[in-house]
Deep mutational scan, measured.
Amino acid sequence: GSMEQGFLPKGWEVRHAPNGRPFFIDHNTKTTTWEDPRLKIPA
């Protein structure tokens, strides 16, 4: 929902695949990933 959306880094969006699995869109680089960007520790 909109709650989890608010925690994503700037430029990211979460969508759900037809099977219900969430995936993440990085509008900054125009890419998608199954990995939650929030789980990655910034270098």
Rank of each mutant, 00 (worst) to 15 (best):
F7V: 14
S2A: 14
F24I: 01
T33G: 01
R21G: 04
I41R: 11
A17R: 05
F23D: 02
A17P: 05
K10H: 10
E35Q: 13
I41Y: 13
R38T: 05
S2T: 13
K40Y: 14
N19E: 03
P18S: 10
T33Y: 08
Q5H: 13
P42A: 13
T32V: 15
T32R: 11
N19C: 14
F24K: 02
T33H: 08
P37Q: 02
L39S: 11
N19L: 01
T33K: 00
K30F: 07
I41T: 12
G11V: 00
G11I: 01
M3D: 13
R38G: 05
A43K: 11
D26R: 00
M3A: 13
K10M: 12
R15M: 07
G20Q: 04
R21L: 07
K10S: 12
M3Q: 11
L8M: 09
K40S: 14
P22I: 14
F24N: 01
F7D: 15
H16I: 15
D36R: 01
V14G: 02
V14T: 05
H27L: 08
F23C: 15
K40T: 12
K40I: 13
W12T: 01
L39Q: 12
E13G: 01
V14P: 00
E13D: 02
T33D: 01
F23Y: 15
E35H: 14
G6P: 09
P22S: 07
I25H: 05
Q5G: 13
G6Y: 11
R21I: 08
P37N: 00
D36H: 06
K30D: 10
K30V: 04
A17Y: 06
G6E: 09
T29K: 06
P37G: 00
N19S: 10
W34N: 03
I41Q: 13
R21M: 09
R15Q: 07
H27D: 04
L39G: 12
N28D: 06
K10G: 08
Q5M: 15
N28L: 08
V14S: 04
R15D: 03
R38F: 04
W34T: 05
W34D: 04
H27T: 08
A17N: 07
G1E: 12
T31L: 08
Q5P: 11
P22F: 08
A17W: 06
V14M: 15
A17I: 05
M3N: 11
W34Y: 08
P37C: 07
T33M: 05
G1R: 08
P37D: 02
G20S: 05
F23L: 08
G1P: 12
T33A: 03
A17G: 09
P37R: 03
H16F: 15
Q5F: 14
T31E: 06
F23W: 06
P9F: 06
M3C: 14
K30G: 15
L8A: 03
G20F: 02
G11S: 02
R38H: 02
T29P: 00
P18Q: 09
F7Y: 11
K30Y: 07
F24G: 01
I41D: 13
I25S: 02
D26L: 00
I41G: 12
G20N: 05
L8I: 05
V14A: 06
N28R: 05
G1V: 12
P42M: 10
V14D: 00
P22T: 08
P9C: 08
W34A: 02
S2H: 13
G20T: 15
K30S: 10
D36M: 01
R15H: 07
P22M: 10
E35T: 10
I41C: 15
R38D: 03
P18F: 08
K40F: 14
W12V: 01
D36N: 02
H16Q: 09
K30W: 07
M3T: 10
P42S: 10
F23N: 02
W34C: 05
K10V: 10
W12H: 02
T31W: 07
I25R: 00
P9E: 04
E4F: 14
H27N: 08
S2N: 11
P42W: 09
N28K: 07
G1T: 12
P42H: 10
R15W: 06
D36V: 02
P18L: 09
G1L: 13
N28V: 08
P22K: 10
A43W: 13
T29W: 03
K40Q: 14
T32P: 02
P42F: 10
G1I: 12
T32M: 15
D26E: 02
T32L: 15
H27I: 07
W12G: 00
F7E: 15
L39N: 12
Q5A: 12
F24M: 01
L39Y: 10
N28I: 08
R15V: 08
K30N: 15
G1N: 11
R21D: 07
K40P: 13
E35V: 12
R21H: 07
K40A: 15
L8K: 01
Q5Y: 13
P22D: 07
K10E: 11
G6F: 11
H16D: 06
W34I: 03
D26F: 06
K40C: 15
G6A: 10
R21P: 04
G11K: 02
F24C: 09
I41H: 13
M3E: 09
P9S: 05
D36I: 02
W34K: 01
E13H: 01
Q5K: 11
F24V: 00
G20H: 05
E13T: 05
W12I: 01
T32W: 15
G6D: 10
G20E: 04
A43S: 12
P9Y: 05
F24Q: 02
L8D: 00
D26Y: 06
N28F: 07
N19P: 02
D36W: 04
V14H: 06
N28G: 05
N28H: 06
N19I: 03
N19T: 06
H27G: 05
V14L: 11
L39M: 12
Q5L: 15
R38L: 02
K10P: 13
G11M: 03
D26W: 04
A17T: 13
R21T: 09
L8V: 04
N28S: 06
S2C: 14
D36L: 01
I25L: 06
W12D: 01
R38K: 00
P37A: 00
F24A: 02
Q5R: 10
